[in-house]
Design a protein around this nucleic acid. Structure first.
Length: 217
DNA sequence: GCCCAGGTGGGTA
DNA sequence: TACCCACATGGG
């Protein structure tokens, strides 16, 4: 275990101690987790909940029902989450992929990790972050989700250097935390919570659980 | 009224 | 490769 791994692991443990388990992903079953992952793109969770509620109420929160919906109908349900035309198209494609997979949705989610990730990325509107969110929170496979908060975190703690690319930041966390889906998922959730409380655009405040006495440049 | 939110994809240099 | 911008709603 090198210096970087030690610091990442220590940060994870400090955050878990400070905030407690986050219980992510919020969602009723794997399909709803997948839907939420798409809807939350560049969108606050409050708006996502609104859209999820509409999809549930319309009886469309399963692959078969969603795949049957017209694009226009799905757009109306997704509207509160913003970028609704794009997201409706992605959700439609995603539901059809789940429906047509061998073994349906459970079959899709039990595929080998790299194949699942690749197939998700092939769907327009699903990028690395959304794909990885589905891999870890819906399929329960060990991958770390790199988002704006995680990037900000590694930069603030001087772990950044040339750790710019998505896969490099991801490998850093996975190397430090190991191949434990629960742990990797929990770590991402904790970083989001940290970011919401302490790591906004302005410098961190004094009561940060991580004690920002590290170089912040 | 302005900025941001648990990004992605297309375009341009 | 590296930026820039549209997407679009709702909350602070």
């Amino acid at each position: 275990m090198n210096e970087r791994d030690s610091r990442l692991l220590a940060a994870y443990e400090a955050l878990l101690e400070a905030f407690g388990p986050q219980g992510w992903w919020p969602g009723d079953g794997p399909f709803e987790v997948m839907v939420g992952a798409v809807l939350t793109q560049n969108t606050s969770w409050r708006n996502v909940e609104h859209a999820i509620g509409r999809i549930r109420a319309a009886g469309a929160m399963d692959p078969a029902s969603m795949a049957e919906m017209t694009l226009g109908g799905l757009e109306e349900l997704a509207r509160p989450s913003g970028s609704f035309r794009r997201k409706a198209r992605t959700l439609s494609l995603l539901s059809k992929a789940a429906l047509s997979a061998r073994g349906g949705l459970p079959g899709l989610l039990s595929r080998p990790q790299d194949e699942l990730r690749r197939d998700l990325l092939a769907i327009p509107g699903i990028g690395p972050e959304t794909a990885d969110s589905i891999v870890v929170y819906a399929a329960g496979l060990p991958v770390f989700v790199v988002d704006a908060y995680a990037r900000r975190f590694v930069e603030r703690h001087g772990i950044a250097s040339p750790l710019d690319r998505y896969e490099e930041v991801q490998a850093a966390f996975e190397g430090a935390l190991g191949s434990d889906a629960d742990k990797l998922g929990e770590c991402h959730a904790l970083l989001v919570e940290l970011g919401k409380r302490h790591c906004g655009p302005s410098p961190c405040c004094g009561d940060c659980p991580l004690r920002y006495d590290l170089p912040t440049s």
